[in-house]
Amino acid sequence: MNKQSVIVKNLSKSYNNKVALNNISFEVKKGELFGFIGPDGAGKTTLFRILATLLIPDEGSAIVESFDVIRDYKSIRKIVGYMPGRFSLYQDLSVEENLKFFATIFGTTIKENYELIKDIYVQIEPFKNRIAGKLSGGMKQKLALSCALIHRPKVLFLDEPTTGVDAVSRKEFWEMLKKLNEKGISIIVSTPYMDEARSCNRVALINNGEILSIDTPENIIMQNDQDILAVKTNDLYKLILDLRSYEKTDTAFLFGEYVHLCPIKPFKDLVLLEEYLQSKQHHDIIIKKIKPGIEDCFMKLMKRSI
């Protein structure tokens, strides 16, 4: 038995002369919760459309559950669930009608697979007679996920399910994904939110059609370990400017209430920096060494690839 759910080799795709995917390769193991993390325009949607057999690559191969995305596209469509980034259900059908429609298309019934979608669907079931176009964003998302699951797929492709969604609903959505994953469904999900990496077993950081790094979130952080100082003073705006004009600074970027400073060479002593900031009239100075987060790593890898 093949242990891989998805195998992608040297995949490329361009639109006119614009490269969307540039020779990318990766594998997703069966039962994994795998995340593609990257900004708009990184190539995430192109990749997901190829995997869902909706788009033909220019070069390379993609295998989903042992089927080839071009030759065996019909077999793939039966066993994958796909939730596109844009809401793609029938706006003028009710919640229940949408779900029934997708169940029927795949030759099954709501009853047969109710157990799988129950946790999610139960939250929108009170509104089952409402037309889908009149649902709130969060409810649409739950309905779309229910429809993508109704035929009990082996693999779930979710393209930016949490984009534009508030922090609370995002957390809830990831809790739902974890539960589904525990039921044995392989899940491949894309997101522009770097903090969501920690909910995945493994992630691929993707930018400009290229994969910057693939590993567990912990390993990515370990491999990109670098000296980072979190600095905070009474005046954040002035701090950024002053840190950028400091001779020992490589980069200085805002991170929440702190500025993350990457020095050109590791600091032996933090006193010099503190004195520099004092000379620039900062007070309430806090300087501490920290471990990088996924976002620090992404920025570092991004800069290297430019």
Binding site: P39, P192, L254
Partner: peptide
């Protein structure tokens, strides 16, 4: 929304400047 992490911060640099 959806902007890469470096651009997102450059954007905030611009916001700070405008506010300044």
């Amino acid at each position: 929304g959806g902007v890469d992490p470096i651009t997102r911060r450059q954007f905030w640099d611009m916001i700070y400047e405008a506010s300044h």
